[in-house]
Computed example of a mutant assay.
Amino acid sequence: MVGTVAQSLDDILAGDDELPLSGDLKRVVEDWLRHVVVERGQSVATREAYERDARQFLAFLKSHFGHPPCLGDLERLDTRTFRAFLANRRKAGVTSRSLARSLSALRTFFRWLEREHVLQNRAVLQVAAPKIPHSIPKPLTVEGAASLIDRDTRDGAEWIAARDTAVLLLLYGAGLRISEALGLTPNTAPIDGRDIMHIKGKGEKERLVPALAVVSDAIATYMRLCPYSLEANEPLFRGARGGPLSPRLIQLAMEKLRLDLDLPNTATPHALRHSFATHLLSAGADLRQIQELLGHASLSSTQVYTEVNRDRLLAVYDQAHPRAARR
């Protein structure tokens, strides 16, 4: 894994001829990325995001200084330079959410530099993060989610249609992230009498997720039709050529279904996970239970679904509170 991270950084930096680095800084950045994976246990997606943020920031510094950045340059950075970097990214059309993530990555990097006694520069900690517009999940209606699962409008081989149905059911029927669904193996899938999945989510956080019979049946149907040998500890879901299934193929399948069923543009694979949580809440599930099922580290992440379902909560309040006006 460590070698993979270092090589990945080499690939990123080699992709831009205008971005040579001093040897000392290159080694430090590689060490930081190793720390992100090995010691902090961050997900592959987080590691890749940190790599992109590092590349973008170092490219900006080279342009800003007119020479390849070194550790001494990092030690002398002031708040104006960090703000100039964010402004530069803003001009390139980057959203506030992405800018906030980049700033968070840089703060993590500079805190690590100080903790490892490489250098100390707290200027980045004084830069305010961009304000992120408040947004709430956009789930599908119960009918819309059901239409995605029940109506087969996909073209191609029968086994591919069965595969896509199984994946979509894992998102809507179990609330999995797409990466979690595609990370299943025959040994971890809810088949052969297993009705509980051990899921490892963000930050390597593990949780137990029950599987409905309809989910298990869909997976069993896909496995029966799949033309490839599915080894016990290999990826369960395969692409047309037999390799691990790409999330992009599920996104494309959703786009087609969305058009065929006249669903809104917000009908994405992740919207099925939102729908899972919102529909459970509507049916009276406890917020703590939903938190556990989704694998959220804090309840505040789950509470956003209460905004989606405000009408139901007000109705419960009216019915249950002793001082509520009876209608």
Rank of each mutant, 00 (worst) to 15 (best):
E114T: 14
E18G: 11
T95M: 01
L13T: 04
R151V: 09
I136S: 08
G239R: 02
V94H: 02
A220W: 02
L77Y: 12
V36T: 13
V209A: 12
H117L: 15
H117D: 15
D16A: 10
R90G: 03
S98F: 00
N187P: 00
L13W: 11
V316E: 14
L58F: 07
G242M: 07
L184H: 12
D311G: 07
S135G: 14
R107F: 06
F57D: 10
R40I: 07
V316C: 01
E292M: 15
G144S: 10
P137G: 06
S104F: 07
V124G: 02
A285H: 09
R224Y: 07
N233V: 01
A105Q: 01
G201A: 09
L280E: 12
Y222R: 05
G239H: 01
R40F: 09
D286R: 04
E18L: 09
L182Y: 03
L103I: 13
Y50M: 13
G175V: 06
V44H: 11
L236R: 14
E18C: 07
D17K: 12
A174W: 07
D192N: 15
G193P: 05
A267Y: 09
L313Q: 03
E307S: 08
Q303C: 01
G183H: 07
R310I: 09
E234R: 04
Y228V: 08
L119N: 03
A285L: 11
D311E: 14
E292H: 13
T268P: 04
R258D: 06
H67Q: 14
R323V: 04
L168D: 09
T266K: 07
D262Y: 05
A162R: 08
D260Y: 00
A105G: 05
L33K: 14
K200E: 12
G203E: 02
A232C: 07
A297T: 14
G23V: 10
G23A: 14
